[in-house]
Design a protein around this nucleic acid. Structure first.
Length: 212
DNA sequence: CACTACAAGAATCAGTCCAT
DNA sequence: ATGGACTGATTCTTGTAGTG
């Protein structure tokens, strides 16, 4: 991960009227711009894609499995704005340090009650700065969980467990515990597009889930 | 242009844990 | 004992860069 340094802000105009929250938003913006610059235009077209592997093709549909690999959403270059309704709720909770985490289309595995989890592929995470260094280290440990609050699209607060898993060689974050009820209460389905923000309320890690 | 190779990550499933 | 929730390894599909 590339951390921001003072050089990254040399072209940033600072308004003395800014609140602490405005500073945080600007920091996120600069971080996103830096990340976008780092990716070459070619990389942007298929940054995470490698090449194709030849395998015997056996239709999964034969086994009642759904077709996968839907189009991966191209993340916006600058973080989207959190809707006003969420902003109000976040402020009510005394929240700050808002960080845009990911925008993703939900897949069957994300809404499958048997799985009861929201997968957050590492490489699609817009910024990892929402975790403190100690939290990131904590998650490295096997079976280590961070308890967080999730603000559902319905504005209901739910306690969830946040973990980091290694799926093969690919690390991913997962939100677990109560995820099924979140899916149910908010009518989330596969193909639903959601945005996830993180923020801090009394140093507690919190997430805001926006349904698009 | 056609083909190959690879990485990413979605989907599945067996095993484990825990509450009833 | 049973069933639901959770875990995480494995399987396998897909997009695209690389090569001829």
């Amino acid at each position: 991960m590339d951390f921001l340094c003072s050089d990254d802000f040399k072209n940033t105009k600072v308004d003395p009227q800014w609140t602490g929250f405005d500073y945080l938003l600007k920091a996120v913006e600069v971080d996103q711009e830096k990340a976008a610059k780092k990716r070459s235009p070619i990389d942007n077209a298929g940054e995470s894609m490698g090449k194709k592997r030849e395998r015997p093709r056996r239709s999964r549909e034969e086994h009642g499995r759904k077709k996968r690999r839907a189009t991966v959403l191209v993340p916006p270059c600058s973080p989207p704005l959190l809707p006003q309704s969420f902003m109000q709720r976040v402020e009510e909770m005394g929240g700050g340090n808002l960080v845009f985490v990911i925008e993703k289309k939900l897949f069957f595995s994300d809404v499958n009650p048997q799985a009861s989890r929201l997968s957050i592929p590492f490489s699609q995470v817009q910024s990892h700065v929402f975790l403190t260094e100690s939290e990131a280290q904590h998650l490295e440990g096997k079976n280590n969980t961070i308890t967080a609050l999730l603000l559902e699209p319905s504005m209901v607060k739910t306690e969830v467990n946040f973990r980091k898993w290694m799926m093969g060689k690919s690390p991913m974050y997962v939100i677990k515990t109560a995820w099924n009820s979140i899916v149910k209460n908010n009518g989330l389905k596969d193909t639903t597009v959601v945005r996830l923000w993180s923020f801090r309320a009394d140093s507690t890690l919190c997430f805001a889930l926006q349904r698009l």
